[in-house]
């Protein structure tokens, strides 16, 4: 009994473990949105894509028995959502923020509608990599039992950081995002770039949903998302469209989210609603501290309607 009792050490460990467990959906949605917003378009509807992705992944995993097929199906569904959004927003006078909010409703509605028969069955879960077997503490083992998608998300953030700066598609994306006219002058079709960027963003957001339903919490029901999709879109602005910052912001957000339950499990139980608000308070505080009225948001794509 005693060798498994780690007392107060459980708190930092729980925060670390929580950061890793909870952050993955934020990582994928915010990376997807970073790509979309870098192209000068905003997709506020990724919450709907995330939930639809969660449902699709779960349903396909139940039907085929393969969680990875579920992830692929979610990506395809997310890409379709992105394509719809991208296609509609290329028309003049169409407001991308408004369409995003409508798409959110659309995604939630159809996910709940089509997902009804899949609430009861259990789906096979995504595998995780046990990195903590060196430790004799089950808590450490559990904390370091990390899902593959987390590592993919980490690698993706590094890759995108590099690719935005050093590759031709990255350059094209940034040119389109900064100025539609400049892109046209360079012979780039901005609509096509934005369409692809929105589709890519959608498919990544759906992977975030697949993580929710197939790994953690690992269940499909109508309360599966507590606004992760919407919050992740906000985190992109917080992270100044920098993929590595997106990753770190997601970790920070996930870690502070685990603070409440971790403190309670060791008996600090006063004011628990306020502990649950900690991630939001911290994000807001950092945002206020790092913003400045004298310069525009550094790194903001020039053609982005949200920050104009």
């Amino acid at each position: 009994m005693d060798e498994t009792n780690i007392g107060l050490w459980g708190v930092p460990l729980a925060i670390l473990a929580g950061a890793i467990r909870v952050s993955t959906p934020f990582i994928f949605v915010s990376l997807g949105e970073a790509i979309t917003e870098r192209s000068g378009r905003i997709n506020l509807g990724l919450e709907g894509t995330l939930v639809f992705g969660a449902m699709t992944a779960y349903a396909v995993a139940v039907l085929t028995g393969s969680p990875w097929l579920g992830v692929l199906a979610a990506m395809a569904a997310g890409a379709v959502f992105g394509l719809i959004h991208g296609f509609i927003c290329r028309f003049p006078r169409v407001n991308d923020i408004a369409i995003g909010i409508a798409m959110m409703q659309f995604g939630l509605g159809f996910a709940f509608f089509l997902g009804k028969p899949f609430i009861q069955p259990s789906a096979p879960k995504l595998p995780s990599i046990p990195l903590g077997n060196w430790s004799s503490y089950p808590q450490v083992q559990a904390a370091l039992n990390i899902n593959v998608l987390f590592f993919i998300g980490f690698a993706l953030s590094l890759f995108l950081f590099w690719a935005f700066r050093n590759t031709r598609p990255g350059l094209i994306l940034r040119v389109v995002g900064d100025s539609t006219d400049a892109a046209r002058a360079m012979g780039i079709n901005p609509d096509r770039v934005r369409l692809l960027a929105t589709a890519l963003g959608g498919s990544l957001a759906a992977v975030g949903g697949a993580y929710l339903s197939l790994y953690y919490p690992g269940s499909w029901n109508e309360g599966i998302s507590s606004g992760q999709g919407l919050m992740a879109v906000a985190l992109v602005i917080f992270a100044r469209w920098n993929p590595i910052h997106c990753f770190l912001a997601a970790l920070l957000f996930g870690g502070t989210g685990a603070l409440g339950p971790a403190l309670k499990s060791v008996g600090v139980t006063q004011g628990y609603y306020l502990f649950y608000a900690a991630p939001y308070v911290l994000t807001l505080a950092i945002l206020i501290a790092t913003s400045s009225p004298h310069r525009a948001l550094s790194g903001a794509p020039g053609a982005l309607s949200l920050t104009k």
């Binding site: 709907g48 719809i84 509609i88 028309f91 169409v94 407001n95 408004a98 369409i99 909010i101 409508a102 798409m103 959110m104 409703q105 659309f106 995604g107 939630l108 509605g109 159809f110 996910a111 709940f112 509608f113 009804k116 109508e222």
Partner: peptide, 18 residues
């Protein structure tokens, strides 16, 4: 299911905004 109305709202609003 109850989500029918939400799905309909979504569809309707996308078309209206489009």
């Amino acid at each position: 299911p109850d989500a029918t109305v939400v799905a309909l709202q979504g569809t309707l609003f996308i078309v209206i905004l489009f």
